[in-house]
Design a protein around this nucleic acid. Structure first.
Lengths: 149, 149
DNA sequence: GTAGATGCAAAAGGTTTGCAACCAC
DNA sequence: GTGGTTGCAAACCTTTTGCATCTAC
């Protein structure tokens, strides 16, 4: 996966792209383009929002990140682990994300595809919840989202 | 629970709302607000886009429709069937939607929740593909027409 | 030197909202 | 009459794109 990929346009190393990659690594949960951009700017890295979007799109096309959508439809990005673990359990409070084994779901999807005669069946599986640490006490004490930076 | 629901503002019957409901019924696959609005206008029903959106939001809040997002992030609405069948296999070409049995996935989600200690785990499961009728080229397999569930 | 990258601002989509006019009850 | 409803337009948000400038190779 670290192959040079000369198939598409050359990837030119720039400080901005390095910064986006770093920002993605640091918070290894999901993050939106806007959040990453804000974090970079806050860190004193002068990078344009367009560049963040372009870099993320490139990473997405290259298969280096997984993308999910939050409730509002915003895209969230996360580095893809080694092979194909692409399903996550995401904490709605703090953004913590756990890769989960979705073998059962993969097999289920294949079975559905076969049973229905559909082709090129793709699946989206996202789990969200509240992690043990964010376990809501009572309504009066909201946990405030610690992911906010 | 899903009875009269007088809990929120009264639902006042209007021609526009009736039209949106009708439009949703007619195409009982998923449809976007924009698509519904266009269809209504084309049918000579003068209804504003805002009203379509507002009606759909109301239906969503009342739990009468299921909502998924297509690849571009557009919201697609569909009447929710009686019980709780909320997972669909959607044809990317024609929009045909099949309700699929997701019992396995439901159980898988519950198991994941238990194993991870997460609370209030919610799941999103969407299957998309190309139905037999829309299958491009590839002659030889007279795909059976899946029945709308 | 040059192909490619950056950043600004403006555009593009989809969705929501402010507000005056409207209509069902 | 009153209060919910409508519709237009403008506001909002996220994401994309045009273009002149800049830079990594």
């Amino acid at each position: 996966m670290t192959t040079h990929e000369t198939s598409r346009a050359e990837w030119r190393a720039t400080p901005q792209r390095a910064a986006v990659l770093r920002a993605l690594h640091v918070r290894d949960g999901f993050a939106s383009a806007q959040t990453l951009h804000a974090a970079l700017v806050a860190d004193g890295v002068p990078v344009g929002l367009s560049t963040v979007y372009r870099t993320l799109r490139f990473l997405e096309a290259a298969g280096h990140v997984d993308v999910v959508r939050d409730r509002e439809g915003e895209r969230l990005y996360r580095f893809r682990s080694a092979d194909g673990h692409r399903h996550y359990l995401l904490c709605r409070e703090c953004g913590l994300s756990l890769a989960v084994d979705a073998g059962d779901v993969e097999r289920w999807a294949v079975r559905i595809a076969r049973d229905t005669g559909f082709h090129a069946v793709d699946h989206t599986v996202e789990l969200t919840g509240v992690c043990a640490r964010c376990r809501p006490g009572r309504p009066g004490r909201p946990g405030r989202r610690p992911e906010e930076a």
